[in-house]
Every structure is written in C-alpha cells, then in structure tokens.
Design a binder for these strands. Structure first.
Lengths: 149, 149
DNA sequence: TGATACCGTGAAGTAACTTCACGGTGTAGG
DNA sequence: CCTACACCGTGAAGTTACTTCACGGTATCA
C-alpha cells in the first residue's frame, strides 16, 4: 500500500532522530555537546587547524567557532597556538586529555556499530552500505555543502 | 580493511547530517523551523492536542511547547481552544492554512523520497528497508524514548 | 606603499531548550 | 463538604548554538 520509497525515508528519518538522541545523551553524560564534539572530531581527523578552516569544515560561521573553541579551551581539551607563518590566524590543537577522550569515544562508537549492525549477515550489511552510498551520492548533489569528512 | 559495521554507521551518520541540513534549509525557506514543524506534524497525525500531550509526544518540556505554540499561533498556523472538559488545559488546533502547508510538505517529502530512492531496484530497496527496521529495533531498545510516531 | 582581502573577536540578536516557582483547576479522602 | 494533592500552562531566568555586522590587526599583490 504505502510507497516503499516513502517507507525508506521514514526509516531513515527515525534512525536519524533516535541516533541523534542517543548521541546527545551520551555526550551530555561525558560533559560535552554535539557541536563541540564535532569540532574535536574534525580536529582529530585534520590535525591542528585555523579557526577559519574549522568553520569551513563544519559549515558554520567563523564567529561560532570562536565560541566553541572558547568552551573547549576552558575545559582543557584544546589550546590556541600562534600560527607559525600567519600572525592573523591561531592554530587550534588537541590536548593529550582530548586525544584520550576521543579514543574512548571511538571505542564507544565501534561498540555501538557492533550492537546495531552485528546481527546482520555480511551480505545484508554490504547491501545496506552500498544502498546508503547511492543515496548519499544523490543527497550530496542535492545539498549545497556536500564536502564533509 | 575497515570494519563494515563501522562503515555502515559512518554512512548512516552522514545521511543524518546531510538530511538534517536539507530539511533545515527547506524549512527556513518556508519560514519555519524544525522544532515548530515537528509540532505541526504531530498535530496533523494526532489531531487537536493539549500542550502537555504535545510535550510528551515530542519529548520536550511543557514550557518549551508553550513557546513553540506561541510562535505558530503568531504565524496563524495553530489556534488555542479551550478544552471542553478540563479548564486547566488548552487544545492546540491546526488552522486551514497549516493543513494546506502540511499537504505541500508531504508532497515535497514524497518527491525527496523519489529522488533519493527512485534509482534503487525494488529488491535493493526492500533490503534497505528491512535492514533499517532491524537496526531501528535495536536502536529503540537502546534509547529511552523509543515511542515516536 | 597602498588598496584590498582575510583572520579572529566584541556586540547584539534569534531559536530552542532547561529548571523553578506560581496561580488556577481537577480529583480523591476523610 | 472541603482539604490535600496532583496536574495544566506560563512568567522568570539561564544555557547552548547559531547568525550578522563592525572593527582592528595582518598578509598580499600591484
């Protein structure tokens, strides 16, 4: 009766909501927020970065990054270093404490992946991934900023 | 090399981000916000509701619903009616204008579903939906509030 | 040696949340 | 009857995540 395409979108939307809820609560328990954690992840993937680079990567305003870095610096998770060649810019760098925390989070994420997808056969899992890849391709074409890590 | 379960989680996360971005921009163009639209959708599914019922359904505080309804009422999308039997409560009701807007949004959503999933064969689409259903089941068990519409 | 573009931040504002306190109302129990 | 008590919605105050605009400092290129 119902269009299977709409059914698929419904499922994706619900996964989105539930996953977002789970992440938010986990992070809150760890004393973090989604926005700040996103910045930390980006920093882990890209290494020390200027705030402008972070703003572009996260798709938010430069002013907002200033605030996020303020909070993270206050929590001792990042430091602001002078840029070696450009005195206008500051390099945001992860502290050792943040690296440890990110390692823990990565482990937790792997655990979650196991819990969510562990019951699926390799074939079904592969089908899921490839289908999502196709959907992602169309989605990236649809959304202006389709260049995230 | 990389764990396919982690790959799957990565895909889901990216879909989440991109879809969220797309929805936010679409709604902004329509003069709405995500939170207010969620309330409208709920109202469309459940019919006139008390603010307390809406708060429970959306998983937010009652105070927050007051603010959302304020905004929607200001935009002429909902009205506050007295509850027929409980004088403490108010019934939030969709206006005709909101019903029209919601119908348009449903059409837009169907169009999006077609764009995203139209290229997949019925078999792959079915596999995607059933896989997501299993994931959803595990996710609902994990997240406290697993009772959304 | 400028004009110009860019970096980060103060100021001000918005939306979505929260908790706490309080007045008005329904619902029992004695 | 009427007194507790639980519940509905909202004012007040506060947080986080965002935005735009303006501005001072710095790089760059002609």
């Amino acid at each position: 009766m119902t269009d299977p395409r709409i059914a698929a979108l419904d499922r994706v939307l619900e996964v989105t909501v539930l996953l977002g809820r789970d992440m938010t609560t986990s992070l809150t328990a760890a004393g973090l927020t989604v926005a700040r954690t996103t910045l930390l992840w980006r920093l882990r993937a890209a290494g020390p970065s200027t705030q402008r680079a972070l703003a572009d990567a996260l798709g938010v305003s430069a002013r907002n990054v200033t605030g996020l870095v303020d909070g993270l610096a206050g929590a001792g998770l990042v430091t602001r270093e002078p840029h070696p060649t450009d005195r206008r810019a500051t390099l945001v760098t992860l502290t050792a404490s943040a690296e440890g925390l990110l390692a823990e989070m990565a482990a937790g994420q792997a655990g979650l992946a196991e819990q969510l997808f562990g019951g699926l056969s390799p074939e079904r899992l592969d089908g899921l991934v490839s289908a999502l890849d196709e959907v992602l391709e169309r989605l990236r074409a649809l959304v202006p900023g389709g260049a995230a890590s």
